[in-house]
């Protein structure tokens, strides 16, 4: 609480009424408090994000020599290779395609669950929600290994299909993009569900009833009312999953078994395998700029649509 000292104009006196001195003083104090409260956060961001980011950008203009030696210089050499070599174009494109596929599939499988959870009036609603996001309690590494067991040549899926006589030889579900996609979709589902639930605020059973009473069939109600009103959640969820998918490393690495190359795995190889830090830094900057732009465009479009 603030107290009024005798030096300050007293409410009701001429000065106090005329210029709103009291409000101005209070505003100033409030502003200072806000700034003070921001300091820890800003410091944390500076140390853990802004400084490393600037350091990485600077690093990308250095030159990498064999055996991890970094030659301090200023060159665009590191950028020329990824921008001209078709291999890196393909990796970038694969990364983009993976983000898109995982995002879309994740939405498709998560949407009904999120919708169900939002609408449920069951007394177990809380429990159901907890179950839906429970996979977050285990790490992505563990879940990726789980998928390797399930999708492998002698895994659950292949042996079941074979014993039912549906396939002659095992499907190739690991060590390729299919496996990575399946794994990522499952791993990101809890995030997608949470993001959608938080964006489904405008949905209401009464609006659907109103549409029904005006003659809309169940399908029309969904297309004209439920879906449009749930778009904000859908857009948020897609963005979240897309961003996580293009930057994820563990699942493409483990389920991809070395044959799936995306920007994240490429950066990892450059840093830990080839010890070419400037080149890894350049790839990181490309990832950042390219996908930052894509996301900015996406946000623009979403706002236009009115999500």
């Amino acid at each position: 609480m603030t107290t009024i000292t005798t030096e300050n104009p007293v409410p009701g006196t001429r000065e106090g009424l005329e210029s709103g001195v009291l409000e101005a003083a209070a505003n100033k104090r409030r502003k200072r408090t806000y700034l003070a409260l921001l300091i820890p956060g800003i410091l944390g961001l500076l140390v853990s994000f802004v400084f490393p980011l600037l350091y990485m950008v600077r690093m990308s203009f250095n030159e990498g020599a064999p055996d991890g030696v970094v030659i301090d210089t200023f060159t665009f050499q590191t950028y020329i290779k990824p921008l001209t070599d078709p291999y890196y174009w393909r990796v970038t494109l694969d990364t983009f395609r993976m983000g898109l596929t995982v995002g879309v599939l994740c939405l498709v499988v998560s949407y009904p669950i999120a919708l169900f959870l939002v609408r449920s009036t069951s007394k177990y609603k809380g429990l159901l929600l907890a179950i839906a996001i429970a996979p977050l309690l285990t790490s992505a590494v563990v879940r990726t290994y789980g998928w390797m067991v399930i999708l492998g040549t002698n895994g659950l899926v292949n042996t079941s299909l074979e014993s039912m006589g549906l396939i002659g030889s095992p499907l190739k579900l690991t060590n390729n993009m299919t496996g990575v996609t399946i794994g990522l979709v499952e791993i990101f589902m809890p995030y997608a569900i949470l993001a959608m639930i938080s964006g489904f605020g405008r949905l209401s059973p009464q609006l659907e009833e109103a549409a029904g009473s005006l003659g809309a069939s169940k399908f029309k109600v969904f297309m004209r009312v439920t879906l449009p009103l749930s778009l904000p959640g859908v857009f948020t969820a897609f963005l979240l999953v897309f961003v996580m998918a293009i930057s994820t490393f563990i699942t493409p690495r483990l389920l991809g078994g070395g044959s799936v190359q995306v920007l994240a795995t490429e950066i990892y190889d450059q840093t830990t395998g080839l010890l070419n830090w400037p080149f890894a830094a350049a790839l990181s900057v490309i990832l950042l700029v390219l996908f930052g732009t894509i996301i900015a465009i996406y946000q623009r479009i979403v706002q236009k649509i009115g999500g």
Binding site: R202, S204, Q206, L207, E209, A210, A211, S213, P228, L229
Partner: peptide, 11 residues
């Protein structure tokens, strides 16, 4: 039908 909360489509 007119609902208690009107149920106008917000979009």
């Amino acid at each position: 039908m007119v609902f208690q909360s009107y149920a106008l489509f917000p979009h």
